[in-house]
Design a binder for these strands. Structure first.
Lengths: 219, 219
DNA sequence: TAAAATATTTAAGCGAGCTTAAATATTAAT
DNA sequence: ATTAATATTTAAGCTCGCTTAAATATTTTA
């Protein structure tokens, strides 16, 4: 299936997930930056391929097959985001742009390898859920802020919940990266500080930072 | 520039590098799995774009612009191969297939990030040279076999020169991967063994293995 | 509820990147 | 050097994924 088809199906899927869910061709067209005519055309074609239900002037609805395809593309996108974020010093915006292209040229095998390498993460760096191999999504984020973590336990960073440049610089300096391992050596309950160990570096976090670094328990 | 164009230019470049260098349309067509007619057609188009010189019934010759494009694609291909090889447990064949797709969807920025992450390697896991950002190629491989390495020095693995499955299994077990760091703790000159330290594991290599693991000095 | 605004669909057409079939040129062989 | 074999080119035509313009349906609003 082509990039155009994958993007079309993905756009319908994402549109359906929003509050303002109007999945008529015009809306999808706007999202994809193509003409309404092109969207109608594509809708008919994909209907013939059993990827969506199309009826004149009605909303577009993905079939099970279409939903599965959309979830597969979304999975690849988010896995790429997670990998690029972990490996490289790139802005989330740049990462998104690269993932947008790579997602269509990624075999299921490679996607699974990326997932395994990252420890099968359930969320990407934006905090969006990553569908598993079978298209299943974990909607409940079981991660907790480092400020809530238990002393003496080991966690994996799942989310850096901030837009602050300085915070990201601090993270980069201290190996605080998505999917890295963190050992919570001490919780100072009085002054709300958290002491952690990351790659043999001991770091003392104040609450500002410990409350926006999200982690998952290791199992 | 499209995937079709990039592949066409790349095919001419690679063809020209071989002994049997006949860069007429038919040969390129065979390499790309397209018809001769399609290749002639494309040659005309690319001539108009100043990517190659085309004269009826003559060989196709890349212009400087075309050569630069080819080198850029080759660079991205080989960087992907190096990265995938380092990160994932995949066969060289699978890695090649994935890189073949990813190479066309990779920004120069991302390519540079991959290169930096790998320590700007000069060769990919096959031992093929990786052009730098400016399209320059290091043709002389300065790497040496571990059997020739100096005691007490630290090296970086540049090449695993084998097709043997068991050898690769041994490598995987012992963190002997492309771009990993190796410390040569002892060279036993009498029985031609080499003792190395990789990620806190001490490994004793016989000459069979130490002579096919190629490394570069760290600088 | 009828007119105005907006959205969707149909129709015609275009470029990219292919195809096959036929015409033409080149190369190899006798 | 002619003929036979092979390669290249031209021509016509296909699908995909778009476009614009016109026709038609739906919504909004007065």
């Amino acid at each position: 299936m082509s990039t155009a088809i994958e993007n079309f199906v993905k756009a319908i899927y994402k549109n359906g997930k929003r509050d303002n869910n109007d999945t008529k061709p015009g809306n999808i067209a706007k999202e994809l930056g193509i003409s309404n005519a092109a969207a109608t055309d594509m809708a008919k074609k994909l209907s013939a391929k059993d990827l969506l239900h199309y009826k004149k002037y009605q909303e577009l609805k993905l079939t099970d097959k279409g939903t599965k395809m959309a979830l597969n593309v979304v999975r690849k996108h988010r896995l790429w985001e997670a990998l690029l974020f972990k490996l490289f010093d790139l802005s989330l915006h740049d990462i998104h742009k690269e993932a947008e292209l790579l997602e269509h040229q990624t075999s299921d095998l490679l996607a699974n390898k990326i997932s395994a390498y990252l420890g099968h993460p359930k969320f990407d760096p934006h905090g969006d859920p990553i569908p598993n191999e079978h298209g299943e999504i974990t909607t409940i984020d079981t991660s907790i802020a480092l400020s809530q973590a238990e002393e003496g336990k080991t966690y994996i960073i799942s989310r850096l919940m901030s837009d602050d440049k300085e915070f990201f610089e601090f993270c980069a300096l201290n190996e605080l990266k998505y999917s890295n391992t963190v050992f919570v050596s001490k919780q100072f309950s009085n002054n709300k500080m958290t002491q952690i160990l990351v790659k043999n570096n001991t770091i003392l976090l104040n609450q500002d930072f410990s409350s926006i670094i999200y982690v998952n328990e290791t199992n």
